[in-house]
């Protein structure tokens, strides 16, 4: 491949990109997604259409975006139970500042993003400075932020949002399929973070941290700073999810996102990312979110009651974690 192949180097035996994809933990979830699509295409004739796919993406865009931040944190062997609550608070902040306080909409959005990043920063500092387990920190934060949301909003839904806050819910057309700008933002975020994780030194460090904080530290990575950065960045992504949420529903809703923390973990796990950290791809979480979306949509079109959709999602999660555990055992 390069000039160095004159000496006997292992470079000649690099696996091809296709083979490398097969070796990633995302191969299984991708196959499952394709199989599910094929199955529903044959089971119901409404499934296979651009409009339906656009709808599925819209339905998963909030949880999918939350799953990006969740993936970052899980890759460091952490977990975030507070992301849905943080998003709901961010949404209320944006809506209330724009509507009740009369702030310029863009300023209100910026404030919402900053607040979400701020909660991420606090989570990160608690995890690193006081060495608390991420599970406990974010469980506490979940309750704190949930309460703050209700106190600040006085349990009132905020309506009458100005246009910039609902812009992402608008659509444009590809052929005769209407696509929301929000869907584009979500996919753009996935691609952006896939790039950061796979093509930059920062991404390598996140994986190393998830593999072993001690190894990362001994190789000179400033692990505390990296961890705080990851939680803060995740918070910023939750802020974008908040904007997507507000755009999609058209209101600031204090009740929003209450199961989204677990749904985002579901997407990450279904996407093949290991809860033990250091293994997985952010694109997998998009696939995981889509698997849930496709099953819900397809089963609904088939007329299966929604409780069975939840049942199947649960079974899929257990299956995904089992596969992860078994594959880890094999490599040991």
């Amino acid at each position: 491949m390069t000039a160095t192949t004159t000496t006997q180097t292992p470079l000649a035996n690099e696996p091809s990109p296709a083979r490398r994809l097969l070796l990633t933990p995302t191969a299984g979830p991708l196959a499952a997604l394709v199989l599910a699509c094929v199955f529903f295409s044959f089971s119901t004739d409404q499934f296979l259409s651009g409009g339906n796919f656009s709808l599925i993406i819209q339905q998963v865009m909030v949880v999918g975006t939350l799953a990006i931040g969740q993936t970052l944190i899980i890759l460091t062997a952490g977990i975030d139970l507070s992301n849905g609550a943080v998003m709901a608070f961010g949404g209320i902040v944006m809506a209330k500042l724009a509507v009740d306080s009369g702030l310029p909409p863009l300023l209100a959005i910026t404030a919402g993003l900053a607040v979400c990043a701020g909660f991420g920063l606090i989570n990160g500092l608690l995890v690193t400075r006081i060495s608390l387990p991420p599970f406990i920190v974010t469980l506490g934060m979940l309750n704190v932020v949930f309460a703050l949301t209700h106190i600040y909003s006085q349990d009132q839904t905020v309506t009458g949002l100005p246009a910039p806050l609902t812009f992402l819910g608008q659509t444009f057309s590809i052929g005769d399929t209407a696509v929301t700008y929000g869907s584009v933002l979500m996919i753009g975020l996935f691609l952006f973070f896939a790039y950061l994780l796979s093509q930059t030194a920062w991404g390598r460090h996140v994986y190393a941290l998830g593999n072993s904080p001690e190894v990362a530290r001994l190789t000179g990575i400033r692990t505390a700073r990296l961890t705080v950065g990851v939680y803060t960045l995740a918070g910023l992504v939750y802020g974008m999810a908040a904007l997507l949420l507000v755009s999609r529903t058209g209101v600031g809703d204090p009740q929003a996102g209450q199961t989204d923390n677990l749904d985002s973990i579901t997407a990450v796990v279904l996407g093949g990312t290991s809860l033990f950290g250091g293994r997985g791809l952010v694109i997998g979480s998009l696939i995981g979110a889509l698997i849930v979306g496709v099953f819900r949509n397809g089963l609904q079109l088939m007329g299966v009651p929604s409780i069975y959709q939840t049942l199947i999602t649960g079974i899929l999660v257990i299956l995904a974690v089992t596969v992860d555990q078994l594959s880890r055992r094999r490599t040991r």
Partner: peptide, 14 residues
């Protein structure tokens, strides 16, 4: 070494 990273990643980690 960082277990899930490849050899080159590990050689140049940090």
């Amino acid at each position: 070494v960082a277990a899930s990273l490849d050899i080159a990643d590990n050689m140049f980690l940090g």
